[in-house]
Simulated scan of single mutants.
Amino acid sequence: MALLPIAEAQARLLALAGRTPVDRVPLTQAIGRWAAEPVVARRTQPESDLSAMDGYAIRFADLPGPWRVIGESAAGKAFVGAAATGEAVRIFTGAPLPADTDTVLVQEEALRDGEALHLTGEGPAHRGRNTRKRGLDFAEGDVLIAAGERLTPARIALAAVAGHAELWVHRRVRVAIAATGDELVPPGAPIGPSQLPESNRILLAAQLADLPVDLVDLGILPDDLDALTAAFAAVEADLLITSGGASVGDHDLVRPALEAAGATIDFWRIALRPGKPMMAGRRGDMVVLGLPGNPVSVFVTAILFAKPMIAHLAGAAAPFPVPHLVLLGEDLPANGARTDYIRAVLVDGRAHPAAIQDSSMLRTLARSTCLIVREPHAAAADAFELVEILDIA
């Protein structure tokens, strides 16, 4: 069976499901989710011309003065009335400019004696100096956040200033996670002969922590076809993620169990290292992802497939990670037929690959800060060549 290229596998994965239904939620619950519809400004910001400095609101045409101070304008307490020729209004940062003024003389260049005000410095260089014009940030009706954009803290604040208390987002994604293998025991439990502490569920939970997910932990499932089939058939979720049992050995029962539970496998075996035996399909409306058992393979396939699938379900317009270019820290040999994701450390802008790349080595992964992306059949690369990386820390 030919191995599926990563880009094709990613496209086929997203084609398995659409978005979750939409909800309207308060801004505090929208953080980290994706906008389900464009966020349009309900007001203009600022609503009037404002002062950008502490000083005096004047007419630029009245320079170089002197002026008579006729009042004060502060944020939340605007000056009522208009300034005539030769008049100035004491003003503070963020306060509305009084009618018929257009410029702010900063207080460091002004000398005031009672109501009399004199210029002591060079003064403002042009009309409108030290002011913020009406609509400088945005105008009513502007599209501020596109559908499919992530609602970052800055975008949440933007929506609030634009007049929104709630936003339309896609429902949180319900994700079920299971580990499979007779050799696995819970973390911290006594270890018997040939046993291993299970780490993939906690690894996945940590990787998905910044996504809008509700996790269902199915625990550690045995290498038993009937038990696996029953567990998979009972799952109610948007996405089921398994780890282990995805290859072709006598004890690799995840695929037959998924099929016995009513799932249809769309693809299996990807031109990827680490993570070749990953599979994907559907059972009813639920997407299923069968990840390999080695923890580094789980980590990489989660970055490339599990997290993007969740982001897609949650409404992301661009769910896949985007690599960027850095200098290579040392030579790399030519690559084989699979895309390789090499654990590396980024130091002073140069990516240094770990000496050993075995997919079971969590210590190496824990020390890594990026993955060097090596395309299939890439030629040998010398130190100081540009390479693509994905940041992981």
Results as ranks from 00 to 15, higher is better:
Pro274Val: 08
Lys133Pro: 06
Ala139Met: 10
Met279Gly: 06
Asp113Trp: 00
Asp62Gly: 05
Thr101Asp: 08
Gly284Leu: 02
Ala82Trp: 05
Pro274Phe: 06
Ala206Trp: 05
Asp49His: 03
Leu16Ala: 10
Trp268Ser: 15
Val25Ile: 14
Phe299Ile: 02
Arg132Ser: 08
Asn294Phe: 06
Pro197Arg: 09
Val287Cys: 05
Ala383Met: 14
Phe232Arg: 02
Pro186Glu: 15
Glu259Ser: 09
Gly293Pro: 04
Asn130Thr: 03
Pro256Cys: 10
Ala344Met: 11
Phe384His: 15
Arg127Thr: 10
Leu3Asp: 11
Arg134Ala: 12
Asp226Asn: 12
Ala15Phe: 01
Ala35Lys: 01
Gly262Met: 07
Ala227Thr: 10
Leu158Arg: 06
Leu119Ile: 09
Arg12Val: 05
Ser48Met: 04
Leu386His: 14
Ile31Leu: 14
Ala15Glu: 11
Ala7Ser: 12
Val25Asn: 10
Leu362Ile: 12
Val22Asp: 09
Glu259Thr: 13
Tyr56Glu: 09
Val39Cys: 04
Gly290Cys: 11
Val39Arg: 02
Gly290Pro: 02
Ser199Gly: 12
Arg171Phe: 00
Leu328Gly: 09
Val300Ser: 07
Glu330Phe: 01
Leu211Thr: 03
Pro319Val: 10
Val106Ala: 11
Gly290Leu: 04
Leu304Asp: 07
Leu111Asn: 08
Val248Ser: 13
Phe384Glu: 15
Ala344Cys: 11
Ala257Gln: 10
Pro277Gly: 15
Tyr56Gly: 03
Ala311Trp: 00
Trp268Ala: 15
Trp34Glu: 09
Leu167Phe: 01
Met309Gln: 14
Ala178Pro: 03
Thr364Asn: 12
Gly275Ile: 11
Leu16Glu: 07
Ala231His: 05
Gly290Asn: 06
Leu27His: 03
Thr28Glu: 12
Leu346Gly: 12
Leu97Ala: 05
Asp382Lys: 15
Thr28Cys: 10
Ala179Lys: 01
Arg172His: 09
Arg255Phe: 02
Pro66Ser: 10
Ile303Trp: 06
Asp285Trp: 00
Ala36Ile: 05
Gln45Pro: 00
Arg12His: 04
